[in-house]
Amino acid sequence: MSERQQQFSGTGDIRQGQEIDIARLSAWMADNVADFAGPLSVAQFKGGQSNPTYKLMTPRQNYVLRRKPPGILLPSAHAVDREYRVITALHGQGFPAPRTFGLCMDDGVIGTAFYIMDCVEGRVIWDATFPTATVETRGAYFDAMNKTIADLHMIDIEKAGLSDFGKPGNYFARQIGRWSRQYLEDPDAGRVPSMDRLVEWLPANIPPGDETSVVHGDYRCDNMIFHPTEPRVLAVLDWELSTLGHPLADFSYHLMMYRMPPATTTGLIGADLPALGIPTEAEYVAAYCRRTGRDGIADLDFYVAYNMFRLAGIIHGIRGRVIRGTAASAHAKKSAEGVELLADLAWSQAQKCGAR
């Protein structure tokens, strides 16, 4: 079992400061969740660095609860109501998002807003090399991930009832501005030279053209539940960063796995892809393009640079929460150590586009 798989898989004791009043939660579920029947017991998933996530167990059915973390939060962060809305809408369109059961915006129930969804039984893979798969099946797992994100980007926004889920147009400019502000407005986490350079370079070099689709915002193998034995995606999780945006921003974020070292997250740099049965980056891009009717992806280096900057900004925010004592994961401190490495990687991608 890989280190990440061991660290983040399964459940454990509820972490200090993130306890839940089971009696109050049970009473709320009895009033708001169809067919709920206790008694209820609760464990906390080891993963979930942003929004604490819990497994709710009853004799009849298991559920998952995601909540805002307690403490001082940055504006617009941890929007569990947006997660709930997009999951509910996409599930209704046949996309593999969990069924939802209820949203509670009343902080008086468990201390922060939360929602409840189905507990989809399957496997979460925390290592992009898919170490438990065989050489013969790894390509099928990658194809399943590729198909799922392509299907997401082909969802009819109007039909799904998500036409007002975000602002259409100028996605890169708005996102670069957002993450630049969050970086600059979190002095607790400190400044990073490569981030400072990217804050200036990125908005001045956005490629022309625009598209709009539902975007996940954090699409990677460990935010999916795979079938217990088959290379199929049963559910896509962690929709906190979802919105209406540019599909190529979303896809290139997912594609970063090909340009990231294993130490940072689920990276494939250094892996022998042919020996593992994993498609090359070019093959993976071509499969996505076939599914979405594209001839290719121009400006891919810019998109990857933007996404590495964005991810560094997210982790910079985690560092700030660690310092303020509001980080949701026991492993957040280790993750927060990767800001400089990610920012340097982002700048190296920008240099491929001519940044100096």
Rank of each mutant, 00 (worst) to 15 (best):
D222G: 04
Q44W: 03
A204W: 06
M57S: 15
S194T: 13
C104P: 05
Y84C: 11
P261F: 00
T229I: 10
M57D: 11
E281N: 10
R290M: 07
F302V: 01
G325I: 04
W28M: 09
L300G: 00
C221E: 12
Y54A: 07
A235T: 03
G245R: 10
F251H: 12
K334P: 08
Y141H: 11
G122W: 12
D188R: 15
P187Y: 02
T212N: 08
E83C: 13
A23V: 13
R356Q: 14
E200A: 15
P59G: 06
C353K: 02
D164F: 08
E121N: 12
Y115D: 03
L311M: 11
G94H: 06
H91L: 00
G177N: 05
W347P: 00
L73I: 14
S26G: 13
Q5D: 12
G92N: 04
P262V: 09
L25C: 03
L90A: 00
V86K: 09
E211T: 08
V109C: 05
G166E: 14
F101C: 04
G270E: 08
P261M: 03
L103E: 06
N146C: 12
V80A: 02
R138S: 03
G245C: 12
E136G: 02
Y258T: 03
D250R: 08
D81G: 10
M256P: 05
T132C: 07
M57R: 14
V214T: 08
G217H: 05
D186K: 07
Y288V: 07
A43P: 07
A328C: 08
M257F: 09
H316E: 01
M224D: 04
G10N: 09
N51H: 09
L162G: 06
G139Q: 05
P39R: 06
D21A: 05
K46C: 02
P228G: 06
V33L: 03
D186L: 12
R294E: 09
V236N: 09
D344P: 00
P96M: 01
Q5E: 15
G320W: 00
R220C: 08
I22Y: 02
G108P: 06
R67E: 01
Y115W: 08
Y171W: 10
P228Q: 06
P274Q: 01
D35T: 11
A97S: 15
S242L: 04
Q182L: 14
L244E: 02
W179V: 01
P208D: 13
Q44V: 11
R232H: 13
L198T: 04
L255D: 02
C119S: 07
D186C: 10
D107R: 11
P208K: 04
V214D: 01
A286H: 03
Y258Q: 02
W347N: 00
P207E: 09
A77V: 07
Q18E: 14
F309H: 00
W201S: 03
E281R: 15
G177Y: 07
D272S: 06
R15I: 09
G122C: 11
A263R: 10
N62S: 14
T134M: 07
Y284R: 11
M145F: 08
E230K: 14
D106E: 13
T132S: 14
L300R: 00
R290P: 04
M224G: 05
E240F: 06
D218V: 01
R85E: 14
Y253D: 13
